[in-house]
Design a protein around this nucleic acid. Sequence first.
DNA 1: TAAGAGTACGAAAACGGTTAAGTGAATTGA
DNA 2: TCAATTCACTTAACCGTTTTCGTACTCTTA
Lengths: 338, 338
Amino acid sequence: MVSMKDISIACGVSVATVSKALNDHNDIGSETKKYIKKVADEMGYLPNSMAKALKTNRTYNIGVLFAEEAYSGLTHDYYAFVLDSFKNTVEEKGYDITFINSAKARSERISYLEHCRSRGFDGIAIVCADFYSPEIMQLVRGNIPTVTLDHIFNNVSAVMSNNVQGMQELLTYIYEKGHRKIAFIHGADSAVTQSRLSSFYRTAAQLGLEIPDEYISMAPYRDTAATYKETLRLLDLKDRPTCILYPDDFAAFGGINAIKEKGLRIPEDISVAGYDGIRIARHIEPTLTTLAQNTKKLGQKAGEKLISLIEHPKTTLIERIFVDGHVYEGNSVADLNA
Amino acid sequence: MVSMKDISIACGVSVATVSKALNDHNDIGSETKKYIKKVADEMGYLPNSMAKALKTNRTYNIGVLFAEEAYSGLTHDYYAFVLDSFKNTVEEKGYDITFINSAKARSERISYLEHCRSRGFDGIAIVCADFYSPEIMQLVRGNIPTVTLDHIFNNVSAVMSNNVQGMQELLTYIYEKGHRKIAFIHGADSAVTQSRLSSFYRTAAQLGLEIPDEYISMAPYRDTAATYKETLRLLDLKDRPTCILYPDDFAAFGGINAIKEKGLRIPEDISVAGYDGIRIARHIEPTLTTLAQNTKKLGQKAGEKLISLIEHPKTTLIERIFVDGHVYEGNSVADLNA
DNA sequence: TAAGAGTACGAAAACGGTTAAGTGAATTGA
DNA sequence: TCAATTCACTTAACCGTTTTCGTACTCTTA
């Protein structure tokens, strides 16, 4: 690899001059600058990012934490899209993305925070993780600029999919389609679930909907077996709902299967709606009506916030950014007004 | 951050001794070693990976290239699963993963290779990219240990999903279910498509199947609109096939919609099969019969090969590793023998 | 007992950059 | 005309490691 030293020799100047020329400092003559840049270019010079980082304490590298639990990290449509958008945003600003992990060599493990410190990440994004584990707690208290997705910590900026707005909009949409008996199979307990559930109740109250307790139940996210079971239960109710909301799109398929097995048609006999807006939902019949989260904006806002936190630590305030979703109108919710 | 210097002062030894003690060199007394390690631990010492990399020319960082084209990188089930497995494999060996990109700062762009050199990646994995672009060509010729997924370059190790075996197994399975009129809508031209298509023809010949030209057509991968259209064409044929193979699972849904719209049932009236084994395919009705690629093994093999290439450059040979898939037996292919 | 062999550690250079401080020459101002 | 600036560059220290070489001991062994 050609270094500044090589260039300095080739140009007959000191390496300091080379450094300053390449970094456009203004105490270098414009002729010299041009010449040095030209030579550097011809020699195929590339800055050694390790050396630079060592000296400047800036790596231009961002750590991203993805849960290592089965099927909920990289391989989840929602997170993958958010990550993709986040990645594009920060790369545009000259930052790279490295995954945070806790596996060091075969011998000892290290904590997430230790990993980050050792790698010298300028900032970190916690996209998807067990937010209640001690390791995550340690990480967010580690004084590295941080932004979290869909979870709020003290003194840490967060980008949140607006679940309150989302659920309100979705439920209102369904209400306006004439539905009055609406069941909600919500996800396992978490901050996200809390938001959606309370928004569901509040919106229902505002709309004057009566929601019997038996219309509300729980199925873990992405668990089609659980939604299948819960759906059968709902279908067997004396007073069957006209529409069922699922924890997420993927889980909705469990319910859809149960409905089809019962010989019922969607949406003619019963309506369903998901949450997330995964791609496949728009490519099956019936297309799934769902609340599409704005993954692009989520990733983008997270990236922008984090970079701002890194580059202007004093003036950037810790805040919660809520990103609205919108109803994707498939044809899984019948229009009862018609 | 506490450095070796701090430890050396605290212990009353030189930083050389600290370095050697922490790295278990055997010219340090065992007592001293133990003591230094203890102090380092208490002080919360963490090695500065930039300094280490600068000196040793080893970053323990692997660059991964993902296409930046819409919907075909991170957000694709197949690639996401491969990446996940790859990530777990290399992290277990102490390596980190950073995305390769070509966006440097807002001003100038740099090439993939330049990015890799600048970051000092020990190795790179090209998971998903436009393999025919000049930039990729430059990258693979860059003399950094490399492994590619599903594409073969000279002098570069490749891990390949065994499309020949896969298509053979899938077609044979369908044949054994009694199907003789089998159509294949294949993907757009690429090495992968070539393998599948030629394996399709060869297997068909071996099985004594007659494949009329009108049974073969093209639809880009993941393009449901295209498969929808092609499926309608196939259904309108005088001599309609009894089973249709799709480019991939996602694209299969386009076909399935077309079939349903025609009022036909799967698999009673017509059978379909996909390729990939994406998760959702197992959670809808009818569950999709497909060739499930072994993403876990693909990622693992790629990781192992790359690390071997990095750590034993002389003795590791450039090779092509083929990973077999298996038929996932859904219920979208009718058993005509019954 | 003196030469040779270990043993346990330290000094210093090096990796490839950045940057504060210094320097000599040209330019400026009064 | 001469001190004061400004300009354009160099010197040298430093970031946190690793590693070669040297050195002062202690221990063998002939």
